[in-house]
Design a protein around this nucleic acid. Structure first.
Lengths: 215, 215
DNA sequence: TAGATTGTTAATCGATTAACAATC
DNA sequence: TAGATTGTTAATCGATTAACAATC
């Protein structure tokens, strides 16, 4: 039974977990009780082998001759991803994108809890977004002292990213969700970084169209 | 010299192109003239081998003993990505996220041009976002007839995604930039899809924090 | 029990890295 | 020319797939 080896799991496997979680969650919602690796593979356009390999990195969640119990699977993957957590999260940069992230994302669904919003522009101070009052950057230190947030969402311009990131690292931040056009990975070791480069993503569509043959 | 083989290039290579494009662009902006694969590798945390392999999929952009001319390299990668294009792009769903994407993204910088915004909610019809008037979904067919857009940005709820996607495919759409929580890949072959799952991305941070040892 | 399907080992495939001859 | 650095082939590494014995 579940003997979780938390270390040495390849990044490719880890990156597939949220997708498993989504598909399993949908099946649970539909009321499906069990699924075999083969059926799930069909739904997700993967191979049964891969699914069994992936899940077995974390423990034997299935049962021979039966398959996987979906509720159990959902709960196990959720635990692996830490979804039951409420990691304190702070957002920087209340422009269009920052506001949209703050209002659009259901942080709690993903193991996080948005507890503060900052913007360098004083004119925005006090404005309410997603039920939180925007704070000026001069209040960062006091806020961190009191709240000790772990995750920073960066919706700030590229030019401001490095300096702010350094400041936040020194205040104890553990992870960055980075929407600025700056590659944080490069400079900070031991800090978790997810660079979301929306520009890179849309360029893939342009590439695809330009190089498609059915055209 | 550049003898572009446009086909049979692995997805891993293609996905690295936008990042090359960004780093090269920054160096050009700084006024740097040339760079060796080794120097670029250091900056990007890659290996020199990989960079040379990657670029050589598309042609010999470098020169022995010299390295790569940055302006030439920028232009070549730009061409490969089709950045000089203005692929007509239409956005669906003018909620928080849709509005933010419309106003925040500089589409032209990425080979696209936003030419229409639709929302199913009639109350939004006529409202202006990013210089465009929001249209009701009943005008989709007429608009496509006239404009023939190639790319659809989906910022709509999961439940509406499949139906709308089918409708747009039948109207000739070529590519989807999909922010809905629905996995389009699964259902449409021959259509280019970029699924942007922001939820998946933030969950990686939760995973990282939960499984970090320095903690 | 017989059938089904897992967990896991072994085989294959692809991607990354290393090495080096070509050449500017 | 000598030094540097590419383009490209060969070696290594890792990830995916196939196979099958274990077992529910």
């Amino acid at each position: 039974m579940p003997n979780a080896k938390k270390t040495g799991i390849s990044n490719s496997v880890i990156r597939r977990l949220p997708r498993y979680y989504r598909f399993v969650g949908e099946l649970v919602k539909k009321g499906t009780i069990r699924i075999s690796s083969g059926e799930l593979a069909d739904k997700m356009s993967l191979t049964a082998s891969q699914i069994r390999q992936d899940l077995n990195c974390f423990g034997g969640f299935g049962q021979q001759g039966y398959g996987y119990n979906l509720i159990e699977l959902q709960s196990e993957i959720g635990k692996i991803l830490g979804i039951e957590n409420r990691h304190k999260t702070v957002l920087f940069g209340a422009g269009n994108l920052g506001k949209a992230i703050a209002t659009h994302m259901n942080f709690k669904e993903y193991g996080c809890c948005l507890t503060g919003i900052f913007d360098a522009d004083e004119n925005k101070t006090g404005e309410r977004v997603a039920g939180l009052k925007i704070m000026g950057n001069e209040r960062i230190e006091a806020f961190f002292e009191k709240e000790k947030p772990l995750i920073a969402v960066l919706c700030i311009p590229k030019t401001a990213a490095q300096e702010l990131a350094d400041r936040l690292v020194s205040l104890g931040i553990k992870a960055f969700w980075n929407f600025s056009h700056y590659d944080l990975t490069v400079s900070h070791k031991n800090i978790i970084v997810e660079n979301v480069h929306l520009g890179d993503s849309i360029m893939m569509l342009s590439y695809g169209i330009v190089h498609s043959d059915f055209n």
